[in-house]
Simulated scan of single mutants.
Amino acid sequence: MIFEWFSATFLSLLGALILDRLIGEPKSWHPLIWFGKWVDSGRLQLQRPLTDCESTQKRAGVFAWGLAVIPWLIVLFISFSVLPSALSWLLSTLVLYFCIGWQSLREHAQAIAFPLAKKELVKARTAVGCIVSRDTDNLTNEDVAKAGIESVLENGSDAVFAPIFWFFIFGAPGVLVYRLANTLDAMWGYKTDELKYFGWFAARADDVLNFIPARLVVYTYALCGMLWGNGARARRCARQQSLYWKSPNAGPVMAAGAGALGVKLGGDAVYFGKKESRPILGEGRDPNADDVTRAVTLIDRGVIVWVVFIYVLI
């Protein structure tokens, strides 16, 4: 029985990855886009009448998180209880397909790398602005490449490997909870005056759910970086440099990826008009357009490694 479940899970994984590469991410009707609009509208309705008291805002944030996630989990469990096995397998495959962002990440990276290689800095700034929260108007070529690589490496963990991990562990319910939690963190997990208390739980939940996958991604990047002769450097950077990064999961992931690529990331960046001095991640030279493409290759190799490993495991 357990073997059959894991076999069906592996076939769903293959199906979702194939769908993602062939079709990509739906641009106008993606369920997560609708989910984001729905929860943000609900947040405004829930948060407006509240005081600015820290404890009140945190309790409201916990309640809002549960209200946004739990009903969809219940709907999924009910669907599995009434559907025949073949349709349950199809539903699992579709849930993972909508929760994974492999091809989308590739497309965003290419939209940065291609104009950057042609010295079309304005287009490259616009493209990188679609996937990062920092200010992009004054970025140099190296800054754009750095921002793009950081986003590719971090989102490779968040949008590709972590969904695969939770799907393999808990099936469709596991990846659904993870992806909704990750979306809520992306929307509410900022330390602005409006969200620093309300979004506290969303940020912590995402940290917890990403903790194990992020550590596995560190080893994945290091293993794949061995093809460039940078496996040991990737592990060393993740171990030493991530201690100084503000995010407990993004730090080791980006440090390992930078080490695997042999480039330097981090440094000063401007967020919402304020300059932040961030630690240096990685070792080697400053990045360029080719390194954005190499970051995508690192993700692609990692996906292959994970699929092979899961196949051998079952």
Rank of each mutant, 00 (worst) to 15 (best):
D291N: 09
A117N: 08
V307K: 06
W38M: 15
A113D: 00
T192E: 02
P84E: 01
D206P: 13
V296H: 01
F6C: 02
L50T: 04
L313T: 02
W65T: 06
L90A: 05
V296P: 01
L139A: 04
G273M: 13
Y311N: 02
G257R: 03
R294N: 07
G101Y: 06
V307P: 04
W245R: 03
D193E: 12
G15D: 01
A256W: 03
R179G: 02
V208D: 00
I169A: 06
F35R: 06
R239Y: 12
L116W: 08
I23N: 00
L105C: 07
G273T: 10
V152L: 10
Y178A: 07
R235N: 05
L184G: 01
I74L: 14
R59N: 09
Q57L: 15
D300G: 01
K274M: 08
S12E: 05
T293L: 12
T293N: 08
K191E: 08
W72P: 03
L209P: 02
R233Q: 10
W245Q: 00
R134V: 15
T126C: 10
W5M: 14
D20H: 13
I78R: 04
F77G: 08
A111K: 12
S242G: 05
T126A: 14
L180T: 03
A214C: 11
S247F: 13
D300M: 08
L223H: 02
N182P: 08
F211P: 02
W188L: 14
L209M: 14
G15V: 11
V144P: 07
A113G: 03
D52W: 12
P115T: 06
R59P: 01
L216C: 11
I212A: 09
L13P: 00
G24L: 14
A202D: 05
E154H: 06
A147F: 09
G231K: 04
A238H: 07
P287T: 02
L50W: 07
L87H: 06
L46S: 10
L180Q: 04
A250P: 03
F167E: 00
T56R: 14
L176T: 02
F198D: 00
S92N: 07
A111M: 14
A162R: 05
A147L: 09
S133Q: 09
L153G: 00
T9N: 00
Y97N: 10
W188V: 10
A250N: 05
A113I: 04
